[in-house]
Design a protein around this nucleic acid. Structure first.
Length: 576
RNA sequence: CGGGAUGUGGCGCAGUCUGGUAGCGCAUCUGGUUUGGGACCAGAGGGCCGCCCGUUCAAAUCGGGCCAUCCCGACCA
């Protein structure tokens, strides 16, 4: 494919509305253009990359026993009313009416439709399991779309669904899919982690997310430096390994702490370590206020609070609620004498003699023994893990890294099969609900994540498995017949080993071609010019390492093969 | 939805405070000189200054309203 006849409108400058690097580079490399907020045009090179990602997905999903189908993007509101999500999904679901005033929505996900398809056809236990997937455009009317393809409103997603006889079957489907996901992200050449995650509103008690590791990631993941444990920070367990303190302390007393609202302010005023303070946070769980206690140097993990209370919704209380519950402005809440339920983080049992808010403006209490002076509903793991914590599995140090969530697999149980009556007859002729699982990969987000993880100041560094073109041949002297003839030979040679080659024989100055090649990110670059030809060589550049080399024109074909293999080897080595 | 910012040729920006009829760089077109990491010279084309209403002799500039985009937050697969 000749560069001159490709639609690759590269830009020298980043668009003003792009913030993250993948967005900037996708636009600069001529791969995407924004149509409107959160909605992008995929230009030819982006489409090539998406297709390559999709090929890997198709092969691995097929290997895992999933068959591809294509569901409609427009879905009837009735199905969503049946599952209950018409009212629960929220504004992210883009709804509209047809000419007959019937409700419709654009599919943000397809559990309803797939369940409808399967319940219509599957009658017998003999037909199960059923495993299906599709690759399709989704639409979610995000409150705040951002970061280019990372969080768009319209995006390409691979979504798979499994229907099994029972929990054991569902486990097997889940496991098979998890394995497939490992293969997928490995093949794509990305550094990733599979992490335990909170299952959110979709259902099930746990799930796994697949994160591409990148500094710009929206999520924080905690992973063990020794064992396989890795979890989204929302979920990461904190194991309290200390002893319960058996001593008590002197009776508590009030101390004036004017204007000391924050832990830091109280600490500096009283000359204390933050760990001596108990932070009392007032939350509202499904409309009811509760108090949550953590050490002054810790952060509450509201997902854990939500799970502990089995609440639908948990949020930090506003100033009015805090005033109503504690009788004091924000900053002076404490557990002593509170009338709402109080939950404490496990590690608070390790000591006594804490400083807490006095539930009174500008005052705190010294020498509080939680066991003696207040009623604690329960002690539980309620805080956010930190880098100083240990792995809850093996006790080795934990490290925190940033990740971009590119895949998520869920056990759905019977949430949809029960709401929508998706059942089969077992061998005894008795009706049973199918047990479901769902498995998503954000295809367009994988593209963005690949760039977030792999770029430098010159542009994108595409992994070969994703690159729109694995190889580019740069002809520096297109007017020279000898140079051009060698360049075309190089194209043919590369074509044989790495698919369609991008051939730049534009009448441009060399600098422009080098810059564009780096920007567009072809992993394999081969340069033909008068100077090299005079020395009897073609020049090479490995985009990943930046290493330059030469190939003798006498052995061009073998040399090219060797170079491609060498580039692939650097990618393979980098993954480890 | 709350807070902040921005909107000026295709792209990136200046000009707005202090009103006087729009400018720079890149890109595009023509001619010439160049040619191994985003060349140079000369010339040319291209703008309802986001939209509407107002103030004024006069509005990119002042006032009001609206719209769009981006960032932070809330929210969320």
């Amino acid at each position: 494919m000749r560069f001159r006849s490709c639609y690759i409108p590269t830009l020298k400058e980043s668009p003003a509305d792009a913030e993250v690097i993948s967005h900037k580079l996708l636009v600069r490399a001529g791969m995407v253009r924004k149509l409107t907020s959160g909605i992008y045009v995929y230009m030819p090179t982006a489409l090539r990359a998406l297709k390559k990602i999709e090929t890997v997905l198709r092969e691995e999903m097929a290997a895992a026993g999933f068959e591809e189908l294509l569901l409609p993007a427009v879905q009837p509101g009735d199905l969503w009313k049946e599952s209950g999500r018409w009212t629960h999904y929220g504004k992210e679901l883009l709804r509209f009416k047809d000419r007959n005033d019937r409700d419709y929505c654009l599919g943000p996900t397809h559990e309803e439709v797939i369940t409808d398809v399967v319940r219509g056809e599957v009658r017998s236990y003999r037909q199960l399991p059923v495993r299906l997937f599709q690759i399709q455009t989704k639409f979610r009317d995000e409150i705040r779309p951002r970061f280019g393809l990372m969080r768009g409103r319209e995006f390409v997603m691979k979504d798979g669904y499994s229907f099994d006889l029972d929990d054991a079957g569902a486990e097997a489907s889940y496991a098979v899919c998890k394995k497939a996901y490992h293969s997928i992200f490995s093949r794509l050449g990305l550094r990733f982690r599979a992490v335990e995650a909170d299952s959110g509103s979709i259902g099930g008690n746990f799930s796994h997310e697949f994160h591409v590791l990148a500094d710009a990631g929206e999520d924080t993941i905690a992973s063990c430096t020794q064992c396989e444990y890795a979890a989204n920070i929302e979920r990461a367990e904190v194991r309290f390994a200390g002893e319960k303190c058996t001593e008590t302390c002197q009776a508590f007393e009030e101390v004036a702490t004017p204007d000391a609202h924050s832990v830091e302010e109280v600490c500096s005023l009283l000359h204390l370590e933050p760990s001596r303070i108990v932070k009392t946070m007032i939350f509202v769980a499904d409309g009811k206020p509760v108090a949550v206690l953590v050490r002054g140097d810790r952060e509450v993990n509201d997902v854990k609070v939500k799970n502990l209370l089995h609440a639908e919704e948990v949020e930090l209380a506003g100033p009015e609620t805090v005033q109503a519950v504690t009788g004091a402005p924000v900053g002076f809440a404490g557990p002593v004498g509170l009338s709402v339920p109080v939950y404490a983080d496990s590690e608070l049992v390790a000591a006594t003699d804490y400083v807490v808010g006095a539930n009174k403006g500008d005052a705190h209490l010294l020498h509080v023994d939680l066991a003696r002076d207040c009623t604690i509903e329960a002690y539980a793991d309620l805080r956010l893990i930190t880098e100083h914590d240990c792995c809850p599995r093996c006790g080795a140090p934990i490290e925190l890294t940033r990740g971009i969530e590119v895949g998520h697999i869920f056990k759905l149980g019977c949430k949809y099969s029960s709401a929508m009556h998706c059942a089969y007859l077992d061998e005894n002729g008795k009706e049973q609900l199918m047990v479901m699982g769902c498995y998503g990969i954000g295809v367009s987000r994988v593209l963005a994540a690949a760039i977030e993880q792999n770029h430098d100041e010159n542009g994108i560094i595409f992994p070969p498995a994703i690159a729109p073109f694995v190889a580019e041949v740069i002809n520096l002297d297109p007017a020279d017949a000898t140079v051009s003839s060698w360049a075309e030979k190089a194209c043919q040679g590369l074509e044989a080993v790495c698919g369609e080659v991008l051939y730049d024989d534009r009448e441009e100055r060399p600098g422009i071609k080098f810059k564009d090649a780096d920007l567009v990110g072809c992993p394999v670059q081969v340069i033909l010019g008068g100077k090299g030809i005079a020395r009897g060589v073609a020049e090479t550049k490995n985009r990943l390492t930046g290493e330059k080399g030469t190939i003798s024109l006498d052995q061009l074909e073998e040399g090219l093969k060797g170079f491609v293999a060498q580039v692939e080897a650097t990618w393979a080595a980098r993954k480890a």
